[in-house]
Design a binder for these strands. Structure first.
Lengths: 329, 329
DNA sequence: TCTCTATATGTAACCGTTTACACATAATTT
DNA sequence: AAATTATGTGTAAACGGTTACATATAGAGA
């Protein structure tokens, strides 16, 4: 690999001058610039980012911390983040935390050691961040937290919508599957659904799940249909869970959506592939990632940011696990 | 952030000594070490990876290049890679290429600028790699290439198995959906299926797809059932395509697997969630990622590697889009 | 003409590590 | 006792960039 010294030598100038043409900063005579540019091309030189980072005390890397890329909601987020960052010349240092605080800290620590310019985290990554006074620019994704910059979808409204749609479409005995309660957005969804359900006159009950694994969802689905055989509407904590419920419902011969309606949450790519395709509350995952990246970029560049919290709207995606509502009922 | 100098000062020794205790290299008196360790703890010091990388001329970062993390096959791969690397203290620099050579080169270039120790690529990343004589340790994942280290699944055998299983289960008019032909493993699958189909006495025909998007798959599925209404067995190019076909088949009222059998490829998490759940040829994606990481680690450490190419077996996952084969036919 | 400023370039310090080398002392050999 | 060898530590030069500062020339304004 050629270094800046090689370029300086070849073009007969000092390294300072080369650096100036590289960074288009300070005065450089046009002829000199031409010579330098030529030398750069001949040597196929490109600057060493590591040396640059060392001096500047920051890299062009951004840390991205996710719970688990294997959960189909997160690739969309990640893609949104990446595409936006990539456009502006930043790269991603990536880690899965599995919601494990130890892993999480370990990743943040190495991110810091690698002098990332910023961090986007879809985990509870709170501690390390708020401790350090010369804090790393950070955006929380799909999480809320007063003191931080955040980008998230309106989970509470999502929960409300889900409940309303189910009621509107004639469900009378609703089951709500509540996800792991330590995850903030999950709580919100649940609260929203409770709010509407509580103000309605339908029966409802709640089944609690402790993870987002398909295995557990399968288990809960079986319970659901054996304990509450007359349930005719299900609000799942996310689409994976909804898929498990749907699968089990079909397996035991329920007709969907005639006997049982199901609404999921997230609108992961899988949802439309199910049969019947899954009605769900859509979170604009890609958009969320993209917004988070844009916000972070502003923080990094110390540009004016108008909002500390960006809440994106959720929408009801009507597919075929809910009944059609007749016009002018 | 405290530096090694701060630690040296606080513990009353030189930076060289601190470096020695940090790296457990060279002689350090036990008492001195204790003093240094204490200073490190008091200052909450941890070494700057960037400075270290600069001097060593290599970082502890590994580049991971994927076509598109949004395609559900790749998160599993990525997770396999990450988990293995993470254990050994390496971090991931991550990029999606969208199979676009320009993006691909751009990523490899910045990986190089950041002095990654190695590269794992699930794209055609050939050029830049083989050009450079002081080559970056590289492992190709899910791709084959004679001159490189590779980890991949036995696609050809997968194709054969798919065809055999379909025939064994009584399909007489098989349709093969052939994926984008510039992607090597896709070709292999196709070749394998052709081999078995060609030596059998079933009718078959081929429909060509140019992408792995669900939208195109949907389109092709419609074509399939309108042009070849009597098809009773379908080999899809991957599980996404298979899902689209299944969806369309159900929509037009075919009974699965009685009238039509379907076999996918990959066994992505979605596959078991479909209804009927999808029979498919499983690639051990996580394992592939993990193996690739292990191989790369060996290359990096210049350990003896026994095999340049690691081919992992595929397996038939029997679910419910294929008929049961009766014992003792 | 003299000063001031804009243009152009080089020198050297610095970013935070690692390590070759020098040096000193203690423990072993011979 | 002399010669090795092992142990322990510091000095300073890298690594490959950036930039403050010094210096020099040319044109502009007084």
């Amino acid at each position: 690999m050629a270094t800046i010294k090689d370029v300086a030598q070849k073009s007969g100038v000092s390294v300072a001058t080369v650096s100036r043409v590289l960074n288009e900063k300070g005065y450089v005579h046009e002829e000199t610039r031409a010579k330098v540019v030529q030398a750069i091309q001949q040597l196929n030189y490109s600057p060493n980012e590591v040396a640059r980072s060392l001096f500047k005390r920051e890299s062009r890397l951004v840390g991205l911390l996710l719970p688990d890329i294997t959960n189909p909601f997160f690739p969309e987020l990640a893609r949104g983040v990446e595409d936006e960052l990539q456009k502006q010349g930043f790269r991603l240092l990536f880690g899965n935390s599995d919601e494990d605080p130890v892993k999480e800290q370990a990743y943040i620590h190495t991110f810091l050691q690698n002098q990332v310019v910023g961090l986007i985290s879809a985990t509870q990554a709170s501690k390390e961040l708020n401790d350090k006074p010369p804090a790393l620019p950070t955006v929380l994704l799909d999480r809320t937290h007063d003191g931080s910059y955040t980008v998230y979808a309106d989970g509470k409204e999502g929960g409300r919508i889900a409940a309303r749609e189910l009621i509107k479409r004639g469900s009378h005995k609703v089951t709500v599957l509540k996800g792991p309660s330590h995850i903030q957005p999950v709580q919100d969804r649940f609260q929203g659904a409770m709010e509407v359900l509580g103000n309605s006159n339908v029966d409802f009950h709640v089944i609690h799940t402790t993870s987002f694994t398909y295995e557990e969802a399968e288990q809960r689905a079986k319970e659901l249909f054996s304990c509450y055989a007359t349930t005719d509407g299900i609000i799942a904590s996310n689409d994976i869970t909804a898929a498990a419920v749907l699968h089990e419902a079909l397996r035991i011969g329920k007709s969907i959506p005639e006997e049982v309606q199901i609404i999921g949450f997230d609108d992961i790519p899988l949802s439309r592939l199910l049969f019947p395709s899954l009605s769900t509350i859509r979170q604009p995952a890609y958009e969320m990632g993209s917004q988070a990246a844009q916000l972070l970029l502003k923080l990094i560049k110390k540009e004016q940011v108008t909002a500390q919290h960006i809440q994106l709207p959720v929408t009801f995606v009507e597919r075929n696990t809910t009944r059609k509502v007749k016009e002018h009922g």
